[in-house]
Design a protein around this nucleic acid. Structure first.
Lengths: 158, 158
DNA sequence: TATTGTTATACTCTATAACTATA
DNA sequence: TATAGTTATAGAGTATAACAATA
């Protein structure tokens, strides 16, 4: 038996699962690199996008939305508050909770952050024809839905 | 200014980069779960597939191939040797190095491991028409190549 | 001098539990 | 009794440096 020719090996690069995982890890890493000049890491950016959808959420609400434990959110908000991106204010109806609000700085950071994401799309799939880019994006969206992944939610970020 | 309607937000689920990262992390996690009954984690499986391609490599060669530091490989080979999947033998030409060899147990594990990967492909993209599955796989392979990712190499696995 | 395997150390992440103040 | 925020601690994972044996 010859281990190099008997076909017992596994051709990882022919499997969609492996390619997705490989390309996904690369995308996450490149996104982190593109976010870095803005002073953000991916998790912090996730909090900001959540607050952009609905400002003033409690830390528990943010943790639920991002599928993180509330203990992790404490540190995230600490970092974001230290960086001047969010403020902890008194919650209007629950004295246990904080209402987390975006600062002007954070609001101004969202457009360049979106541009970073657009640029990354171009970097990764810009080689395709425009209609093929749209087709792939729609296809990927269908696959995430079929896999039961919540839209815009991404645990396990670097 | 109303933060819920002014469009400052970022629609993550519309960006191919985000979808790739989200789906890729999911694929990696599900693959780890499918590998677990075989007594392997993804990194250990990576070593096994490398050795299946060429048995008897040194730890340094394996580390280079997998883009890991040789220090990490020590622990990986320790685990695999403890599980009875590989043996450290005397290297035929370099007395500093070990020749790492697959055991019979490991050879017998490769077919079910490949089946696990096939099953995961079906789980993730089985909802597509067969020709569309092939088209997507080819497309993803082209994207990994364009991104400069080495075929079959995947650092940062869980 | 450089390389292979190894060990030790520090640093980051994550998961869990426990505490406080409120509900 | 349960929940929001916080803190502390332990575990996994990773990165770096150093060492002995050999090239």
């Amino acid at each position: 038996m010859n281990e190099t020719t008997d076909g017992a090996g596994v051709e990882l690069a022919d499997h969609a699962s492996f390619l997705l995982s490989q390309l996904g890890a690369h995308a996450a890493q490149r996104f982190a690199e593109r976010l870095q000049p803005l002073g953000l890491d991916p998790k912090q950016f996730g909090v900001l996008t959540q607050l952009a959808k609905s400002d003033g959420q409690s830390q528990q609400q943010l943790a639920d939305a991002m599928r993180l434990h509330r203990n992790v959110m404490v540190g995230l908000i600490d970092e974001l508050e230290g960086g001047g991106f969010v403020q902890r204010r008194r919650h209007p109806s629950d004295r246990r909770a904080h209402a987390v609000h975006l600062t002007e700085t954070a609001w101004e950071l969202l457009p360049p952050a979106r541009e970073a994401l657009d640029a990354l799309d171009t970097e990764l799939i810009g080689g395709l024809a425009v209609e093929e880019q749209r087709h792939l994006t729609r296809l990927l969206r269908n696959l995430t839905d079929a896999a039961g992944l919540a839209p815009g939610v991404h645990p396990n970020l670097p």
